[in-house]
Nucleic acid binder design. Structure first.
Lengths: 229, 229
DNA sequence: GTAACGCTTCGATCATGATCGAAATGTTCA
DNA sequence: TGAACATTTCGATCATGATCGAAGCGTTAC
């Protein structure tokens, strides 16, 4: 019986190196990074990072684009991010409740981007608040934006009409690996994150995927969404 | 910056062995298997399989239950199956269109179970047909059963009310790794697969996850669902 | 109790691949 | 053209973990 198992193992082996896992994790915000930056994240020399990166590109998990003497790496497709989300969700499950739980950086747990939408306490709080106010149905497996939810986002200036190309779904749950509860993903989730960045509610920290919530953002998330953060 | 990356790598390393990948893949139909059977699937001796299995159980990807002198292994949670689905989807992407595409067993491609629902050509055909007849909206990221879809399944004797415990969603897309298109998962998908097994539309093959479509099944899927298979 | 069977543990061997220093390549800018 | 810089390639070393034979453990059946 021939199955996909060998390809599955090959794929997993690619993620099984701590350096490469760090690189992939770092790229989950969807932005591109230089090889040097990724070497730093992985904690290896540029030569070693280069070797890792070439393997990831060869297997089509990353794509690379040359910008002058630098090379910018990013996730090849959203499918890869979705896969990593799923793996992180399982990775966050502590198999031995006895041993100390995986220490997650406080800033990452507080607020971060997950590919293109909000995650961490902030992401879950926004999703919870929208759910409580009847804007949203969100389950571990699927999500739906209600009429009032569409109205809320519309009032904020978010255009929810589908783009001509790409049939990406409006509303999708994404299981938060630090909170272990779903937050808002899909087009709607990306739109909210975009809005928050544009209005300076959140700011990307220079390093990593965590974001800083501004004073204005704290007020906005509380007042406009009713989030308890 | 402390992230989940080390745990991600550790998890991936567990799947990175061809034997363990085969074992996990074999268990994706949700049924339990003995250690001996899994050793066969993995293509290793019972000792080696035992070592692999203990690692998988220790990391809480599998759970084990003793039945007399045998030990039965199964996936620990549906979350693990969902993660594997996502990985298989990426694993099925051929990074080098030049080199021969991963040879997938014809029976597996034709019809199989994916954890608890239908997959392969059959699964995709049923989902497509339901979509064409307006029973279903199904996208790569989310799914929704229409009123007519609920009626169809209701007429077939499927009770779609949620069980008291567990808030599993009714309708969910699952990206088919052999067809690269979504098929029907979630409670509705599981119910359809259950029905098909009960009415002898499909029969599990003794080995592996592929299923045989009976004559009656062929007629039923064509007549009742409008599937082109 | 004892034999049969399924499975696991132990120990030794062996192969794979991650790593970095050194050197080469390639790109931009002056 | 040459200098500066980012990145890659090459080569050698080293650590990890997959493997199986042999032996041990536990359960069931007679």
């Amino acid at each position: 019986m021939q199955t996909i198992a060998p390809e599955l193992a090959e794929l997993a082996a690619l993620i099984a190196d701590p350096g490469r896992a760090g690189i992939l994790s770092r790229l989950m915000d969807g932005r591109a990074q230089t090889a040097s930056e990724l070497a730093l994240v992985a904690g290896v020399t540029p030569q070693t990072a280069s070797w890792h990166l070439s393997k990831l590109v060869e297997r089509a998990l990353l794509k690379v684009e040359r910008r002058g003497p630098r090379r910018l790496y990013r996730l090849a497709t959203p499918l890869v991010a979705q896969m990593l989300e799923g793996m992180m969700t399982v990775a966050a499950i502590d198999p031995h409740p006895a041993r100390p739980p995986p220490r997650i950086d406080a800033e990452m747990r507080r607020a971060r981007t997950c590919y293109d939408h909000l995650a961490g306490e902030l992401g879950v709080a926004v999703a919870d608040a929208m759910r409580e106010r009847g804007h949203l149905h969100l389950d571990q497996e699927a999500g739906e934006l209600t009429a009032s939810g569409r109205a809320l986002l519309g009032d904020l200036g978010i255009d929810l009409r589908a783009p001509a190309r790409g049939r990406r779904l409006l509303c999708r749950p994404c299981l938060d690996w630090s909170e272990r509860r779903p937050h808002l993903a899909g087009r709607a989730g990306a739109a909210v994150a975009d809005l928050a960045l544009q209005r300076d509610w959140i700011r990307r920290r220079p390093q990593g995927r965590s974001v800083e919530i501004t004073e204005a953002g704290l007020a906005a998330f509380r007042d406009l969404f009713g989030a308890r953060i």
